[in-house]
């Protein structure tokens, strides 16, 4: 009986030493977490780095790296945030921690417009059988990723799939309906100069483009009709073709500008008015 007790007695100090040391690290983590809650991100990172420095057993590696990443994300230092979320992922001890770090990594990549990177992470999670029950959440962020990469049609499809988020689905649908077609603007301008500009609502530019093309087209054709071939070639090359190709480029430029404006307006609306979870 006493022999057994001796064994237990030998274990007690070791356990207690560990518990006490863990307590101080836990306290340090809580202190850093409070700083994070108070939005004192610089100080929070300092305290988390301090904990990492003294945590020789790497007990808090996941938590500290994840929280440092969150601090950087809140401070819009997305590159640093991604670095620490990746470190958190390396130190994840279970599936849940791995998933959390990966999702945060994907969300940060959405914000820094590294959409390919985000898509790669989310697709990897979708293919992972361990996270089948998290499919809705992964798809939700995939939808946000499409919105940030101006793929509103795809975003609409993913949000409307099994009623993932009807508010976002409706918004994506309305943005997608308003978007201008780059191909239509381009090819219609090939047929009627200035049409692409009319299509995007740039009427003055459209009228000017049409006017210049009619004028120089007339002068070029007239030169050939009057058998002044050299004049015709010069006017045609230096003036008419210049305005004709400029008209097509202009139409494309307007479509890109207008679409970007529509996308940015929609994202700004989401930032200010959407109450659901955002990247």
């Amino acid at each position: 009986m006493i022999f057994v007790n001796k064994k237990i007695l030998a274990l007690i100090p070791l356990l207690l030493i560990n518990v006490f040391s863990q307590n101080s690290k836990q306290q340090q983590y809580e202190y850093a977490y409070n700083l994070y809650v108070q939005e004192k991100f610089f100080d929070a990172i300092t305290e988390l780095k301090r904990l990492q420095f003294f945590d020789k057993e790497n007990t808090f590696s996941f938590q500290t790296n994840l929280l440092i990443g969150k601090c950087y994300k809140k401070g819009a230092k997305f590159d640093d945030a991604v670095k620490y979320f990746t470190l958190a992922e390396i130190n994840a001890k279970n599936d849940s921690e791995y998933f959390e770090s990966q999702i945060l990594n994907a969300r940060t990549n959405i914000l820094r417009r590294a959409n390919k990177q985000s898509e790669r992470i989310l697709n990897k999670l979708l293919d992972d059988s361990r996270f089948i029950f998290k499919t809705r959440e992964i798809k939700y962020w995939a939808g946000w990723n499409f919105m940030f990469s101006n793929q509103w049609q795809k975003a609409y499809q993913i949000f409307s799939e099994a009623g993932l988020d009807t508010t976002l689905a409706n918004l994506c649908k309305s943005v997608d309906d308003k978007l201008y077609s780059e191909k239509f603007a381009k090819y219609s301008s090939y047929l009627i100069p200035g049409f692409g500009q009319f299509y995007t609502g740039e009427y003055i530019s459209g009228v000017l483009s049409l006017g210049w093309n009619i004028l120089f087209g007339y002068l070029t054709i007239n030169s050939f009709v009057e058998e002044r071939a050299f004049d015709g070639i010069i006017i045609g090359n230096l003036l008419w073709l210049r305005f004709y190709s400029g008209n097509i480029q202009n139409a494309e430029k307007f479509v890109i500008q207008k679409n970007l404006q529509l996308s940015n307006n929609a994202l700004e609306y989401l930032q200010k008015n959407f109450s659901g979870e955002k990247p």
């Binding site: 001796k6 007695l9 100090p13 030493i17 560990n18 307590n23 101080s24 340090q28 301090r50 003294f54």
Partner: peptide
């Protein structure tokens, strides 16, 4: 007596194991 000595040693070693993150030496190391 063994139990008594253990208690004494536990309390002293555990106090040592409490990391003082803000001791001058630790501040310097960090």
């Amino acid at each position: 007596m063994g139990i008594f000595l253990q208690i004494v040693s536990i309390s002293s070693t555990s106090l040592c194991q409490q990391i003082n993150f803000h001791s001058p030496q630790n501040i310097k190391s960090f």
